[in-house]
Amino acid sequence: MGVTVLQQFPIVEQRTGPSTIELLTKRIVALGATQQGQFLVDCETYSSVPQLGAQKTVHVLHNSEQPATVFSILETGSKTIPLITDGLFDLLMMKMSNFYQSKKQTKVESKGPRFEIGDFSVKLGSVAVSQNFKGILVEVEYRPCIVPAMCWDLIREFLQGFLGSSVSSTPPPYLQNKMQEVYTPNDTIQQYLEHFTVYRKSHFKM
């Protein structure tokens, strides 16, 4: 698992979501990438029933890159606890429906084509909150390197190469605390959750 960086791509007024994805696909294919199927990252949220006391939320995420794993993140007001389990954890959450209820309206997913170019993997995802399109999220993974601090500049240069000037010059806020640590798939999921929360909140703006 190499270092992965997520980047939102702003949609220009005149274009729609699918056409922006087409544009990015053309750019990346022109750089020499080959398509390697599709990917899907989705997130479902469960919140505790009032009888259990203070409000707690469990986000359950799946990543098609790790198909046998379920990532869960528990957010109490003060703590965030990640948990990595087998696929049957979904079944367990279903059994706990008396205690933690799922809010179907806030199911978020990002899906789209997946490309490979040299040692990079690029995924162009269209984010949808309960079937409503919200934006474009680009994920780039540089497979050989496992420490973010070493290759942040390299990844940024790559992103600028085909996304243009919309790339931020500082690493994502979640990664900033973890630049010197070995990168794990859990870090990718936490970044996705960050972005998904932003997209969910923008629900009200649109």
Binding site: G37, Q38, F39, L40, D42, E44, H62, P67, D90, K111
Partner: peptide
Amino acid sequence: TPDSAKDSL
């Protein structure tokens, strides 16, 4: 498209 984990479950 890959099946979502919920669907395959």
